[in-house]
């Protein structure tokens, strides 16, 4: 087994928020008690609907946002040093790629300067000639023409912009990339190119990825392991094949059926994602779960280990695995599991 390069333990983020006319104070739990490991050179895919806390998790791992509680270790070292600051060595080791290549590149900076910014600010390379040399290497690596260095972002297409963002991210030779929805702003045809580029770079430089997406097909294409998030919690987490082929949580099954093109097999899902300000009692998913039972509304299920390294937070995970989901929706569930 590869040792855990990134190790996240019981990470929680609570935001104090003010609600309503009267300015009542409340606590919004964006991420709750999340733990996972990423092996060196591996990809961990974080999937979930909008508002499930994916970006918040990424920001805490990057040290862009302090965690309310819990810890992050990278390469065995704690992310935060004793002074409560991000360890400078670790910060240099990881780089983010953001979702929207239209706001993540300054419109008034030419591509060359966008790419070499981390090299300048972290003083990794000095001298205009050396910087230009490195920029030209990086442009090659991400498949952009050399003359792109003097262009401005508005002269580039979405896909090209995201290549610039990737070149910038790998410029300081990081070992860990946090990819927050790296392709969701792009056309489907371009998505595949960018994902393949990311895969190539990963194998060339032995990069470790945390990949965030609401798109199960993107996550399944890229990842070695997958965590399915809902309202700030993991519903199911484990090796990719286990989570996708032998899902043991209704939410994963619903995401899968929503992603599949096979119309008739779609599982029913009712309503909107509940507000994280007033999460449901018991299992956070019970309000929308087609298999919901009495116990689901009262008792919150813990993540429990299945047979093949996957964990599922469902009272009926065992039954689902055994192919006999509880209650009246049995036929529906077996239908979905057949795939």
């Amino acid at each position: 087994m590869t040792h855990a390069f990134v190790s996240v333990r019981e990470l929680t983020k609570e935001y104090p928020v003010v609600t309503g006319f009267l300015g009542k104070k409340a606590t919004l739990t964006a991420v709750s008690d999340i733990s996972f490991d990423i092996g060196e050179g591996k990809t961990f895919g974080l999937v979930g609907e909008s508002g499930s806390g994916k970006t918040t998790t990424a920001r805490m791992i990057l040290g862009a946002e302090p965690a309310t509680s819990g810890s992050v270790k990278i390469d065995g070292k704690p992310l935060m040093n004793e002074k409560g600051r991000v360890d400078p060595v670790l910060r240099r080791m990881m780089q983010p790629v953001l979702q929207d290549p239209y706001t993540s590149l300054s419109p008034r900076m030419c591509v060359g300067h966008i790419i070499d910014e981390p090299l300048r600010t972290q003083k990794l390379l000095s001298g205009e000639r050396a910087l230009a040399q490195r920029v030209s290497e990086l442009l090659d690596m991400v498949g952009l023409p050399q003359d792109a260095a003097r262009r401005y972002p508005n002269e580039l297409s979405g896909g090209q912009r995201q290549r610039v963002a990737i070149a910038r991210a790998i410029a300081p030779k990081p070992r860990f990339l946090v990819l927050d929805e790296p392709v969701s702003a792009l056309d489907v045809s371009i998505q595949a190119q960018i994902l393949n580029l990311l895969k190539d770079l990963q194998s060339e430089f032995k990069l470790t990825y945390l990949l965030i997406s609401h798109d199960l097909s993107v996550v399944s294409f890229m990842s070695d392991a997958i965590g399915v998030m809902y309202l700030g919690r993991f519903m199911e987490i484990g090796p990719k094949d286990e989570v996708l082929r032998r899902s043991s949580h209704p939410y994963t099954m619903i995401l899968k059926s929503a992603a599949s093109t096979d119309e008739g097999a779609a599982l029913p899902i009712s309503g909107e994602i509940p507000s994280p300000l007033s999460p449901p009692s018991g299992c956070p998913f019970h309000t929308r779960c087609p298999f919901s039972q009495q116990i689901c509304a009262t008792t919150q299920p813990e993540l429990e280990a299945g047979p093949a390294g996957q964990f599922s937070a469902c009272h009926f995970a065992k039954d689902i695995r055994a192919g006999k989901p509880a209650g009246t929706c049995a036929t529906l569930a077996t239908g979905a599991m057949g795939r």
Partner: peptide
């Protein structure tokens, strides 16, 4: 905006962010 966030995460100084971004 994303580019300011990215600059911060690359240890860019406040002066640099104000002047360049």
């Amino acid at each position: 905006r994303g580019f300011v966030e990215l600059a911060k995460l690359s240890d860019a100084s406040t002066t640099r962010i104000v002047l360049r971004h």
